[in-house]
C-alpha cells in the first residue's frame, strides 16, 4: 500500500468528509420521499421527516400499474445495454487493433456525431420511427439507441491501452480476428464493459423524452414517464410524489451499479494486469 499509517488516516478523514458532502442530496431525496407535501414546502427545509409517512408511496403504487412499467423499462434498458456492449466493443476493437481501409474516416464520422447535440436530431428521428410503424412498440423505444458513438470511443480508448502483443500472439497461434476479439480481447475488457454497461443502463433507464413521445398508450410507458404522470401539475409540483418516484427509479440503478462494481474488482483479479 501507498504511504504510511498516518497518511492513511488522513486520507480516510478527507474521504469521509467528502463522502458526507457528496451523498447529502441523495440522502435528502430518500428522506424527503417520506415527508408530507406541507413539510417539503417549509423553509428552511427539514432533514428528518417530522411526521414520517408512507403516503407518497402508497399513492404512487395505488395509482400506477407498476409491474407493467417496470417490465418495459427493464426490457428497453437491457436491450440498449446489451446492444452497446456487443456492437461498440466490436467496432472499438477493430478501430484500436486492426488496420483497414476507411478506418480513419469511420472514426472521424463517429466522433463527429458524438458532438452533435441530441435535441437537433430528435424530430427527424421520430418521423423516421413513425414511418417505420414503430410508434407505441418496444422496438421503437430501444432500436435507435442500440449503438452509441460514446460507447465506441470508450471501448477504443480502453483497448488501445491493452498490450498489442496479445493480438500478435493470437495470430501466431493461428486464431482468426473474430476469435481473437471474442476469446482474447473481450475477456480483458471487464472494467471497460462494466463502465459502459453502467453508464448505458443508467442513461436508458432515466430517458424521459423519447419514451414519452414514442409511447402512445400507457401500456408502453416506461417507469420515468409513468412516475412523472401525477407529480407535476400545470401550475404546481407535488414534491412528495416526485421524490418518491425518483427514489423508486433510482433503486434498480443502484442494484445494477453494485453488481457491475463487483465485476470491476473481478476484472482486476482475472486480467492479471496487476
Amino acid at each position: 500500500m501507498l504511504g504510511s499509517r498516518k497518511q492513511q488516516y488522513w486520507l480516510y478523514g478527507v474521504l469521509a468528509v467528502a463522502l458526507v458532502a457528496v451523498i447529502a442530496p441523495f440522502v435528502w431525496m430518500v428522506l424527503g420521499s417520506f415527508k408530507t407535501t406541507g413539510e417539503l414546502r417549509q423553509s428552511p427545509p427539514t432533514w428528518w421527516p417530522e411526521t414520517a409517512t408512507l403516503d407518497n408511496y402508497t399513492q404512487l403504487f395505488a395509482r400506477l400499474d407498476f409491474g407493467g412499467y417496470f417490465t418495459n423499462s427493464i426490457v428497453v434498458a437491457t436491450a440498449v445495454t446489451a446492444g452497446n456492449l456487443v456492437f461498440c466493443s466490436m467496432l472499438g476493437y477493430a478501430l484500436a487493433m486492426l488496420d483497414f481501409r476507411g478506418k480513419r474516416a469511420l472514426f472521424v464520422v463517429v466522433m463527429t456525431t458524438l458532438m452533435i447535440p441530441g435535441v437537433v436530431t430528435f424530430v427527424p428521428l421520430f418521423v423516421l420511427v413513425a414511418n417505420a410503424g414503430l410508434v407505441d412498440t418496444l422496438p421503437g423505444l430501444f432500436l435507435p439507441f442500440l449503438v452509441s458513438p460514446f460507447g465506441v470511443f470508450l471501448m477504443r480508448q480502453f483497448i488501445l491501452g491493452l498490450p498489442r502483443d496479445l493480438v500478435d500472439a493470437g495470430r501466431v497461434d493461428g486464431a482468426g480476428e473474430l476469435r481473437i476479439y471474442w476469446r482474447i480481447i473481450l475477456p480483458l475488457c471487464g472494467p471497460a464493459l462494466a463502465t459502459l454497461g453502467i453508464l448505458t443502463f443508467l442513461g436508458s433507464w432515466n430517458n424521459f423524452l423519447w419514451p414519452l413521445v414514442v409511447a402512445q398508450t400507457e401500456q408502453s410507458y416506461t417507469l420515468p414517464v409513468a412516475l412523472a404522470l401525477y407529480s407535476t401539475g400545470q401550475n404546481s409540483t407535488q414534491y412528495g410524489l416526485l421524490l418518491a418516484g425518483a427514489t423508486v427509479v433510482v433503486l434498480p440503478v443502484l442494484v445494477v451499479f453494485m453488481i457491475f462494481q463487483r465485476r470491476f474488482i473481478e476484472g482486476i483479479a482475472t486480467t492479471g494486469i496487476k
Binding site: F122, V123, F126, V127, F208, L212, V213, Q216, T217, E218
Partner: peptide, 19 residues
Amino acid sequence: TAIPWDAAHDKFTTAITAN
C-alpha cells in the same frame, strides 16, 4: 391516455409532425 405535463407540448408537436 394520461400523459405527464412535463414535455407534453413536445409530445403534441412531434405527434402532429408524424401524424
